[in-house]
């Protein structure tokens, strides 16, 4: 047997000084990592804080349509191009296999992104910045978003969602 029970009385034997020191060092390292994990959320800006609301695909679709209608400036291959004003709520919809709408944002302005899925679990991955969020259906993920550089950015899906997964590419244009 690979795992054998130690000899009787092992529990009462005295621990050597160096072993005790290593146990304490290992414990300190573990506790430090634990504290860092929580601390990094605030200091390191590694994980974005998000608000999550309960919703349904029907409700989210209705809200998205209303939101896009208000700020629509055009259409590209059947996908609406939306230019929301600074400080507004922006609805982003993930469907197999596309991201809607195409967004035109202003550099330095703050937006509240509402992201949800109509069907499966999708992965919102903003490239080339590599910001990633898992998007489940039935939930509205609210993220505060402030573009700091201008140009074209892509949203790709990084949760495998079927045959057209690799074609699921969205676009965000940030203007000066």
């Amino acid at each position: 047997m690979a795992l054998t029970v130690p000899e009787k009385g092992w529990f009462q034997t005295k621990i050597a000084k160096d072993e005790k020191a290593w146990i304490i060092i290992a414990l300190i390292v573990c506790l430090s990592l634990f504290v860092l994990m929580a601390g990094w959320h605030v200091v390191g800006k590694q994980n974005a804080s998000s608000i999550v609301y309960d919703t349904s695909p029907d409700e989210f679709y209705k809200l998205s349509q209303a939101n896009w209608r208000k700020y629509k400036i055009g259409e590209e291959e059947g996908i609406p191009v939306v230019k929301p004003p600074a400080g507004s709520d922006v609805f982003i919809l993930a469907t197999t296999w596309r991201w809607e709408p195409i967004l035109v944002l202003k550099k330095g302005a703050e937006y509240r992104f509402h992201i949800s899925s109509m069907d499966l679990v999708h992965g919102f991955s903003l490239q080339p910045l590599n910001m990633n969020f898992v998007i489940h259906p039935q939930y509205d993920y609210v993220l505060t978003f402030k573009p700091t550089s201008s140009g074209d950015f892509r949203i790709i899906c990084n949760e495998f969602c079927g045959f057209g997964h690799h074609t699921m590419i969205g676009k965000i244009t940030v203007e000066e």
């Binding site: 999550v52 609301y53 309960d54 919703t55 809200l63 209303a66 939101n67 709520d89 609805f91 509205d140």
Partner: peptide, 17 residues
């Protein structure tokens, strides 16, 4: 503990200008 989308927000999106 996940709450639904606030009614005020829904009204702003659906009816607001």
């Amino acid at each position: 503990t996940t709450s639904p989308i606030p009614e005020a927000l829904k009204e702003t999106i659906l009816g607001g200008k």
